[in-house]
Design a protein around this nucleic acid. Sequence first.
DNA 1: AATCATTTTAATAAAACTGTCACAGATCAC
DNA 2: GTGATCTGTGACAGTTTTATTAAAATGATT
Lengths: 229, 229
Amino acid sequence: MSRTVLVVEDEAPIREMLKFVLEQSGFNIIEAEDFDIAQEKICEPYPDLILLDWMLPGGSGVQLAKSLKQHEFTRDIPVIMLTARGEEEDKIRGLDAGADDYVTKPFSPKELVARIKAVMRRVTPTSNEEPIEFNGLKLEPVSHRVIANEEPLDMGPTEFKLLHFFMTHPERVYSRELLLDNVWGTNVYVEDRTVDVHIRRLRKAISRHGHDAMIQTVRGAGYRFSTKL
Amino acid sequence: MSRTVLVVEDEAPIREMLKFVLEQSGFNIIEAEDFDIAQEKICEPYPDLILLDWMLPGGSGVQLAKSLKQHEFTRDIPVIMLTARGEEEDKIRGLDAGADDYVTKPFSPKELVARIKAVMRRVTPTSNEEPIEFNGLKLEPVSHRVIANEEPLDMGPTEFKLLHFFMTHPERVYSRELLLDNVWGTNVYVEDRTVDVHIRRLRKAISRHGHDAMIQTVRGAGYRFSTKL
DNA sequence: AATCATTTTAATAAAACTGTCACAGATCAC
DNA sequence: GTGATCTGTGACAGTTTTATTAAAATGATT
């Protein structure tokens, strides 16, 4: 789950530093040095969060923040403002701009990253977490558990994800390639046949009560999760 | 369910602003401008949360916070500190007076409300003083004790809070980050891995009668408190 | 200020998981 | 039946994640 952060900052050295720090922490960075460039770059890879310098040359950061909040598509992107120490007073005006948090320069990398993560957590809504059950095989996303007839089963993370995908997409064949895309993630370079091995491991993990019969091989096509025969 | 918030802030304009924002969000507001007035007003309508300015004229906000945590009746009222950015943050964090969260001025109304709600959510179930028990492991919030099969156990404060959180949220995985948010408090910047060490100590503390089996590792996801397996 | 308890960080050990491979079985077309 | 293809399986070497330990930092207490 790599998150993208758009950094809007006019001073190149600071921008570079931000990029470095954030990439170290596993974020994907897009840079913009002013209002206009930011406007352009915002559309394409649609950032998960915007780190915005308060003081920008062309239009100030506040304007950009306001502009962001006015447009349908960008409204829900959380914004963290970067402010310099002295600017206390001006900042009050930022209240209306709708920033989700502030970080003052200079800041510790640790704090910055912590704040970014905190804001993302706060904003990201929890997705579908309802338990799914088929023939006594129950998967609980919340507890991250798979239970077969009241008995907890043990399996690795990949097998869990694989089963989760199957149970949310039953009665349908998926090629190895498609499974890799959906379970491993897009553009991950892994052998197709690796899927076989994980299918094997998954089957073994849920075989105790015969649930492995639901993971079906479709020769020449791939695999399918099905409750029927 | 209208919640009452006590706002302790010396500067009238900011106090007004807070009152306005919070009342807009459906909170019931009591105001106090200094230490003494706060002391008085705290008793009568017993606030659900206290919003406390770090810098107060008479006694500082820290003193008030400490004083609150010392008295039986006020100990369990959650406190959110309002801090200005200029004040050295390390110090603020260091002097941790038992605040449940911090919000820096200036802040966005959205953020403030989000944090207040988050803290209330977090604390409300905690304020339930009923003992909790699972498989002979009993936690008594009132006596601040953990008992395993009639035998009192010994553990540090953090381990207690951690166990308390787990027991009030069983059968659910929590990432290290989420545990830090919920047990340590938001905007506390510590390494994720620190959680491991406390998990270790907690397990050790409750291992005498095998209760450590309920603190389960979920590889790649975090930890879970569960009575199963 | 010195001591003690506790928390945090860092370093190392241990465990679990991954992706590949080689080969064994199956299945299919002819 | 036979060879060609496809899938199943067990093993292993490398990685990643977690456990554990020790040391440093912090805070409270005397």
